[in-house]
Amino acid sequence: MTRAVIIDDEKPALELLANMLLRDGRIEVIGAFRKPSDALREIRSLKPDAVFLDMEMPGMNGVELALMLLEACGELDIIFVTAHTSYAVEAYKVEAVDYLLKPLIPEQLDRAVTRLQKKRMLRGAYEAAVRSIQPETRIIGFGGLRLLNTSGEEEEVKWRTSKTKELMSFLFLKGLSNVYKGQIVQALWPDCSDEQAQSNLHTTMYQLKKALKAAGIHIVIHFKSGKYRMELERTTGDVWEFETFISKNKVVDAANAMNVERVLELYTGDLFADSDYLWSISKREEMLSHYIKLSKRLCGFYMREGRTEEAIQRIGKLLQHAPLEEEAHELLLGLYFREKDRISLIRHYHAMKELLNHELGLEPRESVRQLYNDMLCQL
């Protein structure tokens, strides 16, 4: 039997609906509340399947409350009950099962309960199919947020708004960590009032869960004690792997050089390169700094091993992502000199000189110019 909660600030309306559902026989009423705050406090422990919700209550409308309830419980079907027809469009925002007009009559309640049961049956079949497959999802942050399936193909996620995608990016960066609601609203809506920011978060979180589900991506977002956390079973991420490896490998040697090369290949571009999230700027710079340092250490290992060609390739890739990294340019000049490749030495020096002048309005440092001239004289 479907378990439901009723929320209506008018006691007669609350009792009438409870009695009508009792007579219907397909719904077990496990809670009835006149105050939204009471319902929000108890909803997680009750774990209802559905909520019959009055659209107009003191201090909060039904859509706002519905979003908070969905945030707290995840899968929850909403049936709105109201005396006004003007809220139908608002009800669409949370994909309400039905929209009942007061005064209630048995026929419309029967229709709503029938719709509810059909929706729950279809959802159950879908979720069983998903559980039987359990595809792996890979989240890519370098170069721009993308979600890949088991075959490495990009899943087409229809982000309802740019903030929906930004919220996914923010949660991805936090990984398995708990994230306070206040951290999210401060990062994504710093210029909004607290009330508006909270409302934006509830709406955007609902849209995110809906978008992931529609794309067949099995990522669950939990909310408890004012904190969000992603459940990441069978989910991998390039940024997580990159950070984990960096933290555990401070030295490059023969034992880990191959893995260093593999990890550096994860860096396909700046973190969330296709979006200008203010909250991600410092993290983006940190990731680039790690990439540069690890690339140089690997290059140093290759040089010590006499593997000059591999060192040249690695520095070349580094300069694709950090074209103004002067030390990398100097390393590459030195490698061409080591290989006695005069043509590549000249070509790269002039390309570097043009780049510095175009981007920064500067000439190469005196020490670099002197180094270049000394190399030319010896070739």
Rank of each mutant, 00 (worst) to 15 (best):
L264H: 00
L298F: 05
P103V: 08
E325D: 15
F142Y: 07
E156A: 12
A96N: 01
L122V: 14
E309M: 09
G62T: 10
D98N: 06
Q117Y: 03
L22G: 13
G237E: 03
D77T: 08
L21H: 05
K353I: 05
E261C: 05
K224G: 03
P364V: 05
V368C: 08
G152H: 02
G175L: 08
T268L: 06
L176H: 14
D8S: 07
I346E: 15
R34F: 01
F242C: 07
L376G: 04
Q320I: 07
E241P: 12
Q108T: 13
H350C: 01
A88M: 10
D49T: 13
Q117C: 12
L318F: 01
G216E: 02
V130T: 11
L208W: 04
P135W: 05
V29G: 04
E28W: 01
D276G: 06
L109F: 01
L298Q: 00
Y291S: 03
W159L: 04
K93R: 13
L288G: 09
E155A: 12
K210W: 07
R3I: 04
H348P: 06
D77V: 06
A112I: 06
E363F: 11
L271R: 03
I78F: 00
R314N: 10
L324Q: 07
I27Y: 04
R234V: 09
N149I: 00
E64T: 14
A88N: 02
E309S: 13
R297S: 08
L22F: 15
V113C: 02
Q198K: 11
L65F: 03
L145S: 06
G316H: 06
D49L: 05
R234Y: 12
P323E: 00
L264Q: 01
G25C: 06
W159F: 10
L14M: 08
A351T: 11
T2N: 10
H218E: 14
V157F: 07
R307A: 10
K118V: 15
E261A: 14
E285V: 02
K93D: 10
R314Y: 02
E75Q: 15
L355E: 07
Q183S: 13
D194N: 11
I219E: 02
L70S: 13
T82Y: 08
G59P: 08
L104E: 01
E231C: 05
T203V: 15
E285W: 09
F33S: 09
S282G: 01
S151I: 06
S282C: 01
Q134A: 15
Q207F: 14
G175E: 10
M230F: 02
F52N: 11
E243P: 09
L22A: 14
E28G: 03
L116I: 04
Y277H: 09
F245N: 00
R229P: 06
A4Y: 00
G182H: 09
K119D: 10
K174I: 11
S275F: 12
E107F: 04
R307D: 11
L65T: 09
C192N: 13
N178M: 12
T308D: 05
P135Q: 01
L332K: 09
Y206W: 12
N256G: 02
F172E: 14
E241H: 08
H329F: 07
S295E: 02
G316T: 10
V89Y: 12
G237H: 07
E28H: 10
D38T: 12
L101C: 03
Q183I: 04
A322I: 04
G306A: 02
L16I: 15
Y302S: 03
S280V: 09
R41I: 13
I43Y: 02
L232G: 00
T235A: 00
R23C: 09
L101Y: 00
A112L: 03
H218N: 14
